[in-house]
Nucleic acid binder design. Structure first.
Lengths: 189, 189
DNA sequence: CTCTTTTCTAGACGTTTGGTCTCGTTTTTA
DNA sequence: TAAAAACGAGACCAAACGTCTAGAAAAGAG
């Protein structure tokens, strides 16, 4: 008796081929044109293999994104809120090449409540948690007013990030991150 | 010779029936399940009538939203930035019943660049313009630092609004509007 | 009043996609 | 060797999109 399940085990090679194929497809066409058939064809596998393991195409893309990106979110610890925020925001803003992927996932989350839960837990709330560490440390150092609304501060940071990502009307570069960091420091006092 | 076009004129009654039907359908099912056939059936018109006048179902919903909501965005003028922001934000946050509609339109905009332009011009940027009036007046009164980033302040306001609307993880009520207004006033100085 | 133009409802039609199901095969454990 | 589960390939059905056709209706022009 072993702890392995009965029957042929899941093919890790196929799993990776599917994730790679999903990202490659996303590079060539936009998210709206992404199809399960297309991913299967490119990965050289049957559609059923994809449906067996992922409930929707968004779940495939999300897993591919999580696997590709540095799963560990860097949490800077420079000693001051100002420096920590600057490092965190510029690092976050720098991942701008992922915009099409993030846009697609958010669109899917808005239309599919089940995936929305998945997306929040595995991606969005992880990022919030990282920022919360920074803010909590600053609060412990007394850099944040006792009556400050930590949740609101996080919503300001990620709100601006997502709003600009979605509308694409203003830059999302390092100078922008720097200005946002300054604003947050002033608002936290 | 008149300025009326030749032929049978467009039926205003049918146009309104379609917009009403779209909103009614949205009350009963979520945006993802909204279909042109369903709207046509409920409005008692042929599909062609819808396709003739609107390029996509999102355009129908957007027009219905614009027609229903107070088209004129109230711009308070209380004499102080603090009061103006409080009034503007709480009025905006109060329209929370429109969440499903707004979610659907944003999702569609993320997947369809053509509609995205429409959505920004006819809805999102109109709201930004209203907020800009408030901030410009405050700047003229000297309530905002000369080097303040007005665009960033607007992105903070609407960023938090949309981020909470999309994620639905935190309240979007009048106390929240009040706290956000306070934060903005502090950040603007 | 008749002709032309355009919109109207109604619904058939082809296409695409999603998602399920079937088939015969392969890889594992018992 | 038998049972169990995953595999690739692809058939299959249902749903929705968007186009098209047909005949009726509503307006102006002559």
């Amino acid at each position: 008796m072993t702890d392995r399940r009965l029957g042929r085990p899941r093919s890790e090679a196929t799993r990776k081929a599917i994730l790679v194929a999903a990202l490659e497809e996303l590079d060539e066409r936009d998210y709206a044109a992404l199809t399960i058939d297309g991913i299967a064809r490119r990965a050289g596998c049957g559609k059923q293999t994809i449906y067996r393991w992922w409930p929707s195409k968004a779940d495939v893309v999300l897993e591919a994104l999580l696997e590709r990106a540095d799963t560990t979110i860097a949490i800077p610890d420079e000693g001051s809120l100002s420096d920590d925020l600057l490092a965190f925001l510029t690092a976050t803003f720098r991942q701008r090449g992922q915009r099409p992927t993030l846009i697609g996932l958010m669109a899917h989350a808005l239309l599919d409540p089940v995936f929305a839960t998945e997306f929040k837990e595995k991606f969005l709330f992880k990022r919030r948690a990282a920022l919360r560490v920074i803010l909590d440390r600053a609060a412990a150092r007394g850099e944040i007013a006792a009556d400050a609304d930590i949740e609101l501060l996080m919503d300001v940071a990620y709100g601006v990030l997502w709003y600009r990502l979605l509308l694409d009307h203003a830059p999302l570069d390092e100078p922008a991150g720097s200005r946002l960091a300054k604003l947050l420091v002033r608002a936290a006092r």
